[in-house]
Computed example of a mutant assay.
Amino acid sequence: MKLAAATPAAAQVKADELGQIPVLMYHRIMVKPQQSLDRSTTELYDELTRLAKDGYVPITAAQFVSGRIDVPAGKHPVVLTFDDSTPGHFGLDAQGNPKPDTAVGVIERVAHENPGFRPVATFYLNKDLFGMDELQAAAGLKWLVQHGYEVANHTMSHPDLSHLTKDQVHKEISGMEDEIVKMTGAHTTTFAYPFGVAPHKPAWAEKLDGSYAFQGIFLAGWRPSVSPFDGKFDRWAIDRVRSEGKVKEDDCKQFCSTAWLDYLDKHPDERYTSDGDPNTVTFPNVLEDRLAKPYRAWARVY
């Protein structure tokens, strides 16, 4: 089957929806970081502002794995993920607004300062929800969902799943799923492995009848994800990039967010550039062999 031709507008912006998408991984957000994985509110503000200036538009992990990537033509999707539901991620003040020194507060500020930068992110939750009591947590999760943020599953107690039995894995994930459903009325779409480590049989984490059935699972990797339309995309092992500057630790000079964003800036032909239409997948015709077969009917080439 010959692939359909791209629109002139999509060709003009050099759309490439088989390009790489950064899925950024954050842990604690603090005014003054204490540990290596922590990021300061200033560092988060600076990184998000850079993304906005570089033409990135946030989408949720759920939107990413579904393949419904709706960002303007010429822009680049980015997925912001926050693990462990710590207090620096989210909190509401007495007026019901996000506290300014939290991740959500920073995201909202950057979106306000940069029209077109969508204020959304995905929060991978453990049982201790942002340091809130049960009533606060229920109100908080509802606020997040109502404002377009994704709340997702990260197990009850953040164990290394590779050390657990099948029943223990199910209990950790289904317990957290029950908590989220109780507070939001909806099941989660995606899951992130604690420590990026899969259980003995990954299928244990993918689905449990009557409890959870994820559409994608995220690792704690060191590179941007391939496009969900790429034949190499594995929805059960999606790469993420740790948010960090070019420091020596953990090869961050090459494999953390600042280094990867620099790389994609210098190699724009390798990153995902939207055609502006979530119903089509546009890319240069020389990349046809990379397209996953289920998306051939969506494909547009130039």
Rank of each mutant, 00 (worst) to 15 (best):
D16C: 13
T280C: 04
K53Y: 01
A292C: 03
V110D: 02
L261Q: 08
P22L: 13
P159A: 06
K207N: 04
Y124H: 08
L92K: 13
A61P: 11
E288T: 15
K201T: 08
F82K: 10
L24A: 09
T282Q: 06
I107K: 09
T280K: 13
P100T: 09
T86Y: 14
D178E: 06
I29K: 14
P194Q: 04
A259V: 13
W222L: 06
H27S: 11
Y302I: 01
H187Q: 09
P77I: 12
L219I: 06
M183D: 04
D262K: 14
G91Y: 04
D101I: 13
A15E: 03
V57H: 05
H187S: 08
V197D: 00
V65H: 02
M25N: 14
G221D: 03
P8W: 02
F82G: 09
K248F: 08
A62E: 01
D70L: 11
G91C: 13
T102N: 10
A111V: 12
S257W: 00
P294V: 00
G19E: 10
I180F: 00
H163Y: 07
H163M: 15
A6R: 03
I69Y: 00
G140Y: 00
G210Q: 04
L125N: 05
G91L: 15
G55L: 05
P58H: 09
D46S: 07
T184S: 02
H154N: 05
L261Y: 00
V120M: 01
T86Q: 15
V106I: 15
P284N: 13
Q12M: 12
T189I: 15
F218T: 02
Y272K: 12
I69Q: 01
V78H: 04
L51R: 04
Y272R: 11
A152V: 09
D133N: 10
P100L: 09
V286W: 07
T7K: 11
W143Y: 05
S243H: 07
V145F: 03
K99M: 14
K266D: 06
L92Q: 09
L161T: 03
E179Q: 12
L51N: 01
K2N: 12
P159D: 04
R223S: 04
A11L: 10
V104K: 08
A61D: 04
C252E: 05
D269N: 10
L48R: 02
G67E: 02
P72D: 08
V181F: 08
R68K: 15
I180M: 01
D289H: 15
R118P: 03
K266I: 03
V65W: 00
D167S: 13
F255P: 07
M25D: 07
R271A: 13
V301W: 00
N97G: 11
M156N: 09
A292I: 01
V65D: 01
P98A: 11
K127D: 07
S227R: 05
T81M: 08
D160E: 06
